[in-house]
Write a protein that binds this DNA or RNA. Structure first.
Lengths: 355, 355
DNA sequence: CTTTCTTATGAAACTGGTTTCAGTATAAAT
DNA sequence: ATTTATACTGAAACCAGTTTCATAAGAAAG
């Protein structure tokens, strides 16, 4: 019996016909149908064509769930970020998605909002759901569930932020310390000495390392970082804005420059400056970190440390996919550190001489 | 035999122990273990506790794949957007994710980049993968694979952009025509008569409807839209920038105002203005659409039509989850249209009198 | 003290595929 | 003509659960 009408073809999609139906219609066993689908070269041409014909007319697609259960692969890649609303992560995810799709893998998006519990929850979920791989883009150094990853067979990779035991892991990141150092050095070279640090949570490696770079540059000039110049808020525009207001409220002792641990916060700080009518760069110099597309806007022109997010994302995706596809490569560590680059735009100037 | 050591518990995670192992250890059949997990009230308390004890010490988790194969639910919700890099979509997805997570559903992120083929590809993939539900945030009106959705049992909902046969579908959107009308009216009320339209692809409903609103407002004043004032580029900042340059190159006949079909493009246009040293709003008034967070920045201050993206996302998620959880509700159509709101900021002014 | 109704449980069938293994038919080598 | 190797194919086992159905035990009713 042949199936020809459009209605039947439609039914095929709706009615979830199975490999048994195909086998019956083609007059073969379901093993053969499975072989036609997976290892066609092992099926005689005549048989293969007959089966293929049935598959085509019925518009049959094997159930991916049943398949996943067998071959133990889901085609899912978990991507954990802190906030997709942050252009930094959006760009990262976008690039990850592109390389994954090219290899028939799909992305599970997880926003942790920077909360440790959310990260732990998602790690557990992804392990249980048997994701084929996991990309951690926003790990907290005190995150508890990483051991689940080490114990599972699932390949995973860190991007941008690293965990405590980084030697054991794969990662792709920028040289954050070097970046922080460059930014601060640049401000010092302009003549600034009162340089504040505006960062995120201390539990994130990127923040910590950028701070280390900041500290290093200051120490080289015998200017140890001062407690009252250290600010840390939420890793977002609002965080930058709120802490920014506090910085600007510092009065006489106000710093003449701020190194922001990320662009998104820096833009928040710029907002605060506008609101308080503090002129940038005349009254306050600002350097950011990340070089998100926004920073290049003519109305923003943020001087920043660039760390090609797109590359970060794409490369991490590639490495992960490679490990998924080639299990023998899983025990060689891939640890990539991109050199940062200072992008000088218009938010920095020498300090005005006051008093 | 009781399992107590940490090593054993770890092995549990790694070694993928199955329901059979639990059954054996608890001295019951796997059916009973399954019941303890799914319908505990149907198991005698004594037995239940024994099984639970084993589950706890072994740290056993049922394989979600096997489970999905049985109950025909994956816990996956596909979210198709055109570009997560666009703050509009980022915000939308963020809110969708939040409501989904609250109901133990997870998000599959799909970027179509506004291309019809990608959308078709993803629709097909999601249907095949048996997603529990699909949110379409960037549908093209000429998209071909929607019929797969109608034919499948999978609940789906459109956000922001609608398909051709909208009567048959669930959707959450803003009143785009009304928004376009309001924006244009506002420009007219300021005294502008040479008002350009800068939009995206004509195949997207939101663009088309906003244009309709624009046209309606103009027609009421007997000012039919002029071909040379109609611009359409990529629905992104770059698109706005490029088309913006073309608008500004119009010389003598240059429009005095532009209604942009979305904020992201409007910001691109602002870039172009900065570059060509065209003063906004003195020499050119601009109204956007969407009211993305960026538009409120002090350095941008874009006058725009607001359509609470967050609400759009959250509500669409809620409706979809509701349909997934309550199949009986699936055949009542949910069609929500939010009223838009004009947010006047600083990119509009009366036209300068020239010549 | 039967009979009837619940309740608890396990065996087996089922979800929809993949894979191993054994067997047959055919081609090649002796 | 006989042996050996090779190419195909199908039955059955398997992946890891859920669900139906039959049965046994215990409780309630007659």
């Amino acid at each position: 019996m042949k199936i020809v009408s459009k209605e039947d073809a439609m039914k095929a999609v709706k009615k979830n016909l199975t490999i048994n139906d195909i086998a019956a219609q083609a007059g073969v066993s379901k093993a053969t149908v499975s072989r036609v689908l997976n290892t066609p070269e092992k099926v005689a041409e005549k048989t293969r064509n007959r089966v293929l014909a049935v598959i085509r007319t019925t518009n049959y697609r094997p159930n991916p769930l049943a398949r996943a259960l067998n071959i133990q692969r889901t085609g899912i890649i978990g991507v954990i970020v802190s906030d997709i609303t942050n252009p930094f992560y959006a760009l990262m995810v976008r690039n990850i998605e592109e390389v994954c799709r090219a290899h028939h893998h799909y992305i599970f998006l997880c926003n942790t909002d920077g909360r440790r519990e959310e990260e732990e929850f998602y790690i557990r979920s992804l392990v249980e759901k048997k994701a084929d791989g996991i990309i951690l883009g926003a790990t907290q150094m005190d995150s508890k569930n990483l051991h689940l990853l080490y114990e599972s067979e699932i390949p995973f990779i860190f991007v941008s932020r690293l965990p405590q035991e980084r030697e054991r892991c794969d990662y792709v990141t920028a040289d954050n310390e070097q970046g922080g150092y460059m930014a601060t050095q640049y401000l010092l070279s302009l003549g600034h000495t009162r340089i504040a640090y505006l960062g995120g949570r201390w539990e994130t490696s990127s923040n910590l390392e950028r701070f280390e770079g900041y500290k290093k540059a200051l120490m080289e000039r015998d200017l140890p970082p001062q407690e009252e110049y250290l600010f840390s808020g939420e890793f977002r525009m609002e965080g930058g804005y709120e802490e920014g207001l506090r910085i600007l409220a510092l009065g006489k002792n106000r710093p003449t420059a701020v190194f922001c641990a990320n662009d998104y916060m820096a833009i928040g700080l710029l907002e605060a400056c506008r609101e308080r009518r503090v002129k940038v760069p005349e009254e306050l110099s600002i350097v950011g970190f990340d070089d998100i597309p926004l920073s290049a806007l003519k109305s923003i022109q943020l001087t920043t440390v660039s760390q090609s997010v797109a590359e970060l994302g794409a490369l991490s995706g590639k490495i992960l996919i490679d490990k998924i596809l080639n299990p023998q490569k899983r025990n060689v560590r891939q640890q990539v550190v991109f050199p940062p680059k200072l992008v000088v735009r218009k938010t920095c100037a020498p300090p005005k001489i006051r008093e």
